[in-house]
């Protein structure tokens, strides 16, 4: 499991590096090297670490461990074929982590980042819609059962394309430099992570790597099914590049517009699942 965890962290960070590179090339910039996020993580690991004098110390430090802990748990759940509901819960709890990062420092930039994270709660609803749609078809939320269902009936990507689209929107809302990345927009310096430096930021980078890997892997397992390892990696890169295109070609929305668009998408998805429920 340690080997899988390390691979997930480094490959997740590599995916984030590819994301930055693709965005840069679309925007006709050279962009950083693809391993830049890995270098960031290593660099921050050895930089001077401090806790701001105004911070709530225990929360400031503890929330980093919680962030790594919840995504490690998510990885274990995905690899062991556990319940999709646990992944849903962890995804939602990541919002509390962002909130905790932002509020614990005392910095107004962090605080605004944390508050923006709370007000964009509508971004979680499409994930719940995906979960509900899957439950209607597979009658189970265990990832092993969902994979088994797809081996008999074909990928859920074809059966419930709108549920896959909902999950794709969820992935998009968590990608950096995307239209919904209001929690870390430039007018807030780095948003909720502004004051976390040194080893705390390295921990946050580890969390980001794990989160990217887990969400993409979940998408593949739940909507495409069990693939050979090299195909999973290839599928991850392809999905990521499509996300990078969306991020590169769409401006970051204002907080108000971001919440409005997410709420509209959530409303449409809820109506879709209600329709599926009535039809079944």
């Amino acid at each position: 499991m340690i080997a899988e965890l390390l691979f997930a962290v480094f490959f997740g960070l590599l995916l984030l590096g590819i994301h930055r590179k693709v965005i840069a090339r679309i925007q006709r910039r050279p962009g950083p090297p693809v391993w830049q996020e890995i270098l960031h993580m290593l660099k921050f690991s050895f930089k001077t670490t401090w806790v701001p004098a105004t911070a709530s110390t225990a929360l400031f430090c503890g929330v980093v461990l919680v962030a790594i802990g919840i995504w490690t748990a998510a990885l274990v759940v995905v690899l062991s074929g556990g319940s999709l509901l646990v992944i849903f819960a962890i995804y939602m709890l990541h919002k509390i982590v962002e909130h905790g990062f932002g509020l614990s420092s005392g910095s107004p930039y962090g605080k605004f980042g944390g508050v923006r994270s709370v007000i964009s709660a509508a971004s979680e609803i499409p994930l719940f819609v995906s979960v509900a749609a899957i439950a209607i078809f597979t009658q189970s939320l265990m990832i092993t059962d969902i994979i088994a269902y797809q081996e008999i009936n074909g990928p859920l990507l074809i059966t419930v394309p709108l549920a896959a689209l909902a999950m794709y929107v969820v992935l998009l809302s968590k990608m950096p430099f995307g239209p919904f990345s209001i929690v870390e927009s430039k007018e807030l310096v780095s948003g909720y992570k502004t004051e976390h430096f040194g080893v705390w930021r390295a921990g946050l980078e580890v969390c980001n790597g794990l989160k990217t890997y887990v969400l993409l892997l979940t998408f593949i397992l739940v909507f495409i099914g069990n693939l050979p390892f090299w195909l999973v990696i290839l599928a991850m890169v392809i999905i990521l590049i499509t996300l990078s295109f969306v991020c590169a070609l769409s401006p970051m929305l204002s907080p108000y517009d971001s919440v409005t668009v997410q709420t509209l998408i959530a409303g449409l998805m809820v109506a879709y699942v209600a329709l599926l429920g009535v039809m079944s």
Binding site: L59, G62, S104, G106
Partner: peptide
């Protein structure tokens, strides 16, 4: 998660907001 954050509440002093 509820337990962990309750422990944080127990041991944390609030931040001094700027």
């Amino acid at each position: 998660l509820a337990l962990v954050f309750t422990v944080f509440v127990l041991v944390s002093r609030p931040e001094r907001q700027i």
